[in-house]
Design a protein around this nucleic acid. Structure first.
Lengths: 222, 222
DNA sequence: GTATAAAGTTAGATTCATCTAACAAATTTA
DNA sequence: TAAATTTGTTAGATGAATCTAACTTTATAC
């Protein structure tokens, strides 16, 4: 089995799995844009390699080995995204497509060097955590901006939607991770939020947009 | 046909071809470590795509289109090698293996950014020319150190042998591109050269080694 | 200048990742 | 709970890249 192919299945299994760490053949098929019979047959092969648990008609689950392998790939992807923005000057909207390719490079040294040059970052340019070398992922419980109340002050910590269009729309409004946002008001009609940040004193964000933005509460000094 | 595969054939055709730009099936087969029948069948496919001229029992030749495509890949390879040494801190002995993988990445922007960050370099870390965007290659007529005479002063411009072992052996002797070498004497018995450079006042290089080192004559002021 | 060796091709097999068509199981719905 | 829908599997085909075995052409050597 081509490592490229297997890696893409593992990554999809990892990122698509719900809280119970399960994925259905159907979900995976849609995610990868590969027909179900192909997925089934690949799952059998990955099961032989002890990377997934596979039983007919049951949801799929990564084994510990599979999880480790998957997070190794996600680590490479996210380190690459970080490298592309921090060291090469790409915008956060441009890095995904390139990282999808770079993540398959087989060279421990290459990614270790990136990590070192970046100062061992813990989050990628979209705020997603970078798994450590053992596959451990820092789980921060960020809340959605849409769940905040008027008057709150929060910090933009991550974006859920990482599509080029969405990120470009955020660029147009000078929105970046780390910015402090102040919620001035929320429209009762459609939940549109009026927010101020940086030099922008009054920006309106639709509810749909607010659901794609993850925030961190500002730490209170003891 | 997978672009990865085709790219490797094109690259090999380009780098293996002699002055008359011809390569035999046998040579290509050895170069790529792929059996002759496989090469033959791939050549027929590349011929359909107008990338090579193929006629039964005749040597292979890249078309103009094929040459352009091949030098695009070599450009990506060499830019990557340069990026790895200059921007990431790798040694010249470590970059080839990584560049073999990175060269297949499909992203104009990625390589343009590298080029820009590097200041549009014209040679890679081993002294090989980096093809320009149109596939044009600067041909410098470097001479072999082995052909120099005692008393000459020259500059180390490139290495022919880019194997890890050879480059490490040069590292051990503090030899780098750009160094000025002074040929102190040549043993009549085995053509071993006694050379001085930098802080090294007397280093001996066997004839075999001297054949792997390309030099540039020092420019005389007008 | 024929015999031998080397190089190249053809034919046919294999493995991988994919597909479609047909069938089976599980889930949802009426 | 039986019918309809969705999900999943099996079987069989396809195209890509590779191989080996057998054959043909070209080059080399005596």
């Amino acid at each position: 089995m081509n490592s490229f192919t297997a890696e893409n299945y593992l990554k999809a299994l990892f990122t698509t799995s719900n809280e119970s760490e399960e994925v259905t053949v159907n979900e995976l098929s849609k995610q990868l844009n590969i027909k179900m019979p192909t997925v089934t047959s690949m799952m059998k092969k990955l099961a032989e390699k002890k990377l997934v648990y596979y039983e007919s008609y049951k949801p799929l689950r990564l084994t510990a080995k599979g999880k480790k392998e998957a997070s190794r790939i996600i680590r490479k992807h996210r380190l690459t995204e970080m490298f592309l923005t921090q060291q090469m000057g790409f915008g956060w909207e441009d890095v995904h497509a390139i990282a999808e390719q770079v993540e398959h490079i087989q060279s421990r040294e290459f990614f270790e060097k990136m990590d070192e040059l970046l100062g061992y970052p813990r989050f990628d340019p979209h705020g997603s955590p970078i798994p450590d070398k053992n596959g451990k992922i820092e789980r921060k419980n960020f809340n959605k901006l849409s769940e905040c109340k008027a008057g709150e002050q929060v910090i933009l910590a991550a974006v859920i939607n990482t599509s080029v269009e969405f990120l470009k729309s955020l660029n147009r409004r000078d929105l970046k991770l780390g910015l402090q946002l102040k919620i001035k008001s929320i429209s009762p009609a459609d939940k549109t939020m009026e927010v101020s940040y940086g030099k922008r004193k009054s920006e309106k964000f639709s509810h749909v947009v607010c659901e794609q933005l993850l925030i961190e509460n500002i730490l209170k000094k003891a």
